[in-house]
């Protein structure tokens, strides 16, 4: 405890000196296009972040598209400046895919200085309202994109934890196609929409939520080792069927090698957005589950992968050691 307090105080003092030399321009780099939903969220953050950073720097957004976020991840791991002038907002998929299949990565995503995530959201499984199904139904068909996608990972969690007889059908390109197949009755469920997209797109008249992954209230109380122990005790007809945190939306990170002092300045600025009423009003208009939580994304990823592939955990542990 004493050691932690001293470390925090040292970091605080150091971050004060960092504040004096903080860059006058900051770029929030996103792995999607400037016309994406991520860019819209980044604009809201950029508008408000300046007031919480030392010297109120000008904050811009830059798009670094390509390879599903890997292009940005590579730049963060290799070339981006480490002076605090660049911060990335990305999806945790990059980290997940790095853990699952590192082929093609000539750098380590784990080296990025992860700051935390903006939306600690729950991912839901839905079925068609016109053709309702229970997730425990024998042979239920769950739609998903390819095996490296979030949809597949979520579906696999459902299959591993609740219904081994479920059939996971991969090959859809995106959520639109999966939703269309659900409407047509070709699949009976899919796991992937967040509460916010579900509500924003007003799909409640044609779909119904049948399960949620990652209830934030439950997850904090449980450790990794408890996860499998509790599976049998889950009420399978109610929302949550697992306790995995999904802090993977609008995840923030700094280039590899950035000093802990600069990281602390950012964490403090991002944390202070939690008390910025104007910011929260604008943010929650787009993503209702707002709360910035500082966190180590690598350990979050390890927890998520427990349900999909224990071999991944071993790899993640090797990286952290």
């Amino acid at each position: 405890m004493l050691k932690e307090t001293i470390t925090a105080m040292v970091l605080l003092l150091a971050s004060n000196s960092v504040a004096a030399e903080f860059p006058s321009k900051v770029s929030i780099k996103i792995g999607n296009s400037m016309s994406s939903g991520t860019a819209a969220i980044a604009r809201v953050i950029a508008e408000h972040l300046s007031g919480h950073l030392p010297g109120n720097p000008v904050v811009n957004i830059e798009a670094v598209e390509g390879a599903r976020g890997v292009q940005l991840a590579r730049q963060m791991a290799t070339t981006e400046p480490k002076d605090g002038s660049v911060v990335a907002m990305t999806s945790m998929s990059v980290l997940h895919n790095f853990l699952i299949d590192p082929a093609g990565y000539d750098f380590s995503v784990a080296d990025t200085v992860w700051l935390g995530a903006f939306a600690n959201t729950i991912v839901y499984c839905v079925t068609a309202r016109a053709n309702p199904a229970a997730l425990t139904d024998e042979g239920i068909i769950i739609g998903a994109a390819n095996k490296a996608s979030d949809f597949y990972r979520n579906g696999m969690m459902l299959k591993n934890l609740i219904n081994p007889s479920a059939q996971l059908v991969s090959g859809f390109t995106n959520e639109v196609e999966i939703m269309a197949a659900l409407e047509r009755g070709e699949i009976q469920a899919y796991c992937g929409p967040t509460r916010s997209t579900y509500e924003r797109e007003k799909r409640a008249d044609i779909q119904q939520i049948v399960a949620g992954i990652g209830d934030p209230q439950a997850l904090e109380a449980r450790g990794v080792s408890d996860l499998f122990k509790d599976v049998d005790g889950l009420d399978r007809d109610v929302l949550e069927f697992s306790t995995f945190p999904t802090k993977w939306f609008y995840t923030m990170g700094l280039p590899a090698g950035t000093s802990p002092e600069i990281a602390e300045v950012y964490r403090e600025a991002l944390r202070s957005l939690n008390a910025d009423v104007d910011f929260i009003a604008e943010f929650t208009a787009r993503v209702p589950e707002y709360q910035f939580r500082p966190g180590d994304m690598l350990s979050e990823a390890i927890k998520i992968h427990l349900a999909t592939d224990p071999a991944v955990i071993e790899r993640a542990r090797q990286i952290t050691q």
Partner: peptide, 20 residues
């Protein structure tokens, strides 16, 4: 690119440029 079914990288030569 990354195949639509398995997520296997095909003809990408280990280069993330070709994933898309």
């Amino acid at each position: 690119g990354v195949d639509p079914l398995q997520g296997v990288q095909r003809f990408t030569f280990g280069n993330s440029y070709f994933w898309d």
